[in-house]
Design a protein around this nucleic acid. Structure first.
Length: 480
RNA sequence: GGUCCCUUCGUCUAGCGGUCUAGGACGUCGCCCUUUCACGGCGAAAACACGGGUUCGAUUCCCGUAGGGAUCACCA
């Protein structure tokens, strides 16, 4: 574009509230946000709610919620496009008065017949401009206002991602600006709003690239400054097809609630999808703002990979603050347990978090992995735990219990030393003692280091759980 | 079908004419660490879609072919 950069960069994210904030929209918002912040400019949010039938308040709430969760703070007030309908109509009439637009009285049926014929003749489908130069307007008939677009020559857009893209004006038809009911079309509304909002850089999905040419014609008809365009490729599903319900086309709230993702993980993943900075994989918000540029955005669509997202999430989980994680999982834990967590419980979680978070790939699995700490005796045993206990040498647990009970102070070092000593005495491997203990203490075959578990659980609870199992096996042995 | 865009390991990408026997990450496989599972460490297999040019030299530039994508509404 022009060599002189605009004084201030202004970007916007303009979703239509017809559904949740999906993953592609979130990335578009992120790129707009980062670009604006990088240039010390402004990032605005505009809700394109001109489709009164499909727009819902729930969708608006979901978009706002999703952006807040991701920390994509916009500047200024949220603009609702519908509220600006009068202004849009004003521009359409201005264009009409200036001879850059015209009335079209073609009916829907008439246009459909026209397209059917074009299809039959295998000609491109476009409005043929039949009312472009007519002035014999029928009285009292409804009409739309169409842009009188240039018919010869070409337009080229110097897209910051796609490069220069040229299209012949003959390929573009005269788009509808104002519907017969007087409401503006999307094409009119975006252009007017972007202009009025002072948007300098339009970063959006490349499904809008074709629209850009028509919009440019409108901008030029109004004599407005032309924005810089950057059309970013869409995100596809794992199979390469367009992202749909069955892929990952869920709302970002699903990534938070259903998949237990951390916002910084989703942000990092989305940032690296279609954009790269050398070999850097983990990028902080500050680095993203410092490094983000449009040149780094790839031109081919990228596929969504849940495995990689999980991996990124695991990384952020492992480095996340323990108090924060404890807070995040508490609601889920309380709902499964059916009780409020006490301060003692929270402290226990907090202390165990460093070990727990190394094993989690998402918030939900992290929450689930804490349950055994909080359950009240006697705790449940899963099948693997039951098998471990069944295959343990006769009386081993009792002897281990006796040895452990003698440990003072109750801590990892002493407990482990005691267990090793017993293993030596019994001429078995430490694992042969650790595994039955794990089963007894956690009810599962996998857990954090068992001595860490014992320390976290405390002496009474630990020994009590072992006692529960001893009692159980004694009964079953007796009755067998 | 018209128009436009794209094409490096399975996936995300690095590469912006010689540094490429093509680098990193996820995933996969193996080994190590080890009381289990993880984490961590080490290592392996794995890609320049194809065909022409341009050039002393192409993954990098150009043109075709094939494949993929986007879009063609009084929807946004």
């Amino acid at each position: 574009m022009s060599a002189s950069a605009p004084a201030k960069v202004v970007t916007r994210f303009a979703p239509s509230p017809t559904g949740f904030l999906h993953i592609g929209g979130a990335r578009t918002a992120l790129f707009n946000f980062l670009f604006a912040r990088h240039h010390g400019g402004e990032f605005h949010l505009r809700i394109e709610d001109t489709d009164r039938v499909r727009s819902t308040d729930e969708a608006i709430a979901a978009i706002l919620d999703g952006m807040q969760w991701l920390g994509l703070d916009h500047d200024g007030e949220v603009i609702y496009q519908f509220s600006r309908a009068a202004r849009h109509a004003e521009v359409a009439n201005q264009l009409l008065a200036a001879g850059h637009a015209y009335r079209c009285f073609a009916t829907a049926e008439e246009l459909e017949a026209m397209r059917a014929e074009q299809r039959a003749q295998k000609r491109p489908l476009r409005y043929d401009g039949r009312w472009r130069d007519r002035t014999d307007w029928p009285q009292g008939q409804p009409f739309v206002i169409r842009l009188k677009a240039p018919q010869t020559g070409n337009v080229t857009i110097n897209d910051q991602v796609q490069g220069p893209v040229t299209v012949a004006n003959a390929e573009l038809d005269d788009m509808v600006l104002l519907r017969s009911d007087g409401t503006p079309t999307y094409m009119l509304a975006v252009v007017v709003d972007d202009h009025d909002m002072g948007v300098t850089h339009i970063i959006r999905g490349d499904d809008h690239l074709n629209n850009a040419f028509r919009q440019l014609a409108l901008i030029r008809a109004m004599g407005w400054p032309e924005p810089v365009y950057a059309h970013i490729p869409l995100i596809h599903g794992a199979d390469g097809a367009k992202l749909s319900k069955r892929h990952g086309a869920l709302g970002v709230d699903a990534y938070r609630d259903q998949f237990g993702m951390l916002p910084e993980a989703l942000e990092n993943y989305l940032l690296r999808l279609g954009w790269g900075h050398g070999d850097d994989e983990f990028i902080t918000r500050a680095q993203a703002i410092e490094w983000f540029n449009l040149e780094g955005v790839g031109r081919s669509p990228s596929r969504f990979d849940m495995k990689k997202l999980e991996s990124v999430n695991g990384h952020y989980l492992r480095t996340a603050d323990d108090t924060r994680l404890t807070g995040l999982i508490t609601p889920a834990i309380e709902s499964t347990l059916g009780r409020k967590l006490s301060q003692v419980d929270s402290d226990l979680l907090q202390r165990s978090m460093p070990e727990l978070k190394k094993r989690a790939i998402d918030i939900n699995s992290l929450a689930a992995s804490t349950l055994f700490y909080l359950r009240t005796r006697p705790i449940n045993m899963d099948d693997a735990a039951l098998r471990l206990l069944a295959s343990a040498p006769q009386g081993l647990l009792s002897r281990a219990r006796t040895a452990l009970a003698a440990v003072t102070p109750w801590g990892v070092a002493g407990l482990e030393a005691s267990a090793r000593e017993l293993a030596d005495a019994e001429s078995i491997k430490l694992g042969s003692i650790a595994q039955p203990l794990r089963a007894a203490l956690t009810g599962a075959a996998q857990s954090p280091g068992i001595f860490d578990v014992m320390e976290a659980l405390g002496r009474d609870e630990s020994l009590g759980r072992i006692d529960d199992v001893i009692a159980l096996t004694t009964i079953s042995t007796t009755s067998a």
